[in-house]
């Protein structure tokens, strides 16, 4: 028989009940593929769908990489400053007033892909990273 105490009550100050049910291993230290001369190899270019983003791990930081309709590549820090969640790579890509942008999937602010500045509040910006393609492989430099 399930009781209130079973399901919801944990000894004071402990989170054992919740943690014990999580089967996943503790997050390991990020396995970042080796960087060569400050550039991190991400993936083959074909892996990037135009007008959509992916998330990469660059020096331990989550970075959103976008390929636009006209085949430009952009990289921004993945953390959405308005929500604090690591989600920008999952936003919708498009343009506003000619500027290529990504819309945060949480609260829908738009970030310029080239500068990282939020269109709704230009005092807020996310870091941008240089991107290049070498032998058909996308590489990201440091911020």
């Amino acid at each position: 028989m399930t009781t209130y105490a079973d399901v919801r009550h944990h000894p004071d100050g402990s989170t054992d009940g919740a943690e014990a049910k999580d089967p996943r291993p503790e997050p390991t230290a990020p396995v970042t593929p080796p960087a060569t001369d400050g550039w991190t190899r991400i993936c083959p270019l074909e892996r990037l769908t135009p007008e959509r983003g992916v998330c990469a791990l660059v020096g331990g930081e989550p970075v959103a990489v976008f390929r636009t309709r006209d085949d430009e590549l952009y990289a921004l820090h993945n953390l959405d400053p308005f929500s604090g969640a690591s989600v920008l790579s999952r936003g919708i890509v498009g343009d506003l007033g000619g500027t290529p942008v990504v819309a945060s999937p949480l609260y829908k602010q738009h970030f310029a892909l080239d500068s990282g500045v939020a269109l709704e509040d230009d005092s807020v910006a996310v870091a941008t990273y240089p991107v290049r393609v070498v032998d058909g492989v996308v590489e990201i430099g440091s911020a």
Partner: peptide, 26 residues
């Protein structure tokens, strides 16, 4: 293939995701 944490480190869980206990709720 869209459902990966990192395109260049697919097995690595997103380290920014963290849960805490709040009055017995995760």
């Amino acid at each position: 293939a869209r459902f990966t944490s990192f395109v260049n480190a697919p097995g690595t869980p997103d380290p920014t995701i963290e849960f805490v206990d709040h009055l017995g709720r995760r």
